[in-house]
Amino acid sequence: MDRIGDYIIPIMIFVIVIFGLIRKVPIFDAFVKGAKDGLAATYSISASLIGLVTAVTMLKSSGALDMIITAVSPLAQAVKIPAQIIPLMILKPISGSGSTAMLTEILSTNGADSFIGRVAAVMAGSTETTFYAIAVYYGAIGIKNIRHTLAAAILADLASMAAAIVTVRFFFGG
């Protein structure tokens, strides 16, 4: 499984550069333009990320995070979810920066290559900020009655999160 991860970046760079040349794209100009957008996107999340990483760091150092994890662990064990993941699962659909902050906390406490670290990363990578997306899309066109949107979206999130645990166990053990 390591192999895929090791090779994907060089392969993608190779394919994209060749593709760009074949399609006669001014590749360096196009790269610079896209890279500027990437810088701007990272910059635009920086203030909220600073706020939320600080809040989560405080939560951790006050002992509150461990208290929450201990409190939910009987329930988490019953459904076979690592208790350390629960705060991320709660934050993920609500806040992008909040879940990023929680992910960094989990990775720094457990290690990026640990079972818990991998599950957290897969969860973060396979779900979206559900409430935000719903608010933006329906807000833009003045829809008031969203019917079964929330139910279906949350069930989809839960399915992805469950799959994250199962797939990490399958591919990496643990």
Binding site: M1, D2, I4, G5, D6, I8, I9, T104, L107, S108, G111, A112, D113, G117, R118, A121, V122, M123, G125, S126, T127, S160, M161, A163, A164, T167, V168, F171, F172
Partner: peptide, 18 residues
């Protein structure tokens, strides 16, 4: 940033989960 040896090794998991 948090020291993963091969950060993209979770790719198949992310794909299946999403």
């Amino acid at each position: 940033n948090y020291g993963a040896r091969s950060p993209l090794d979770i790719l198949p998991c992310v794909f299946v989960s999403s």
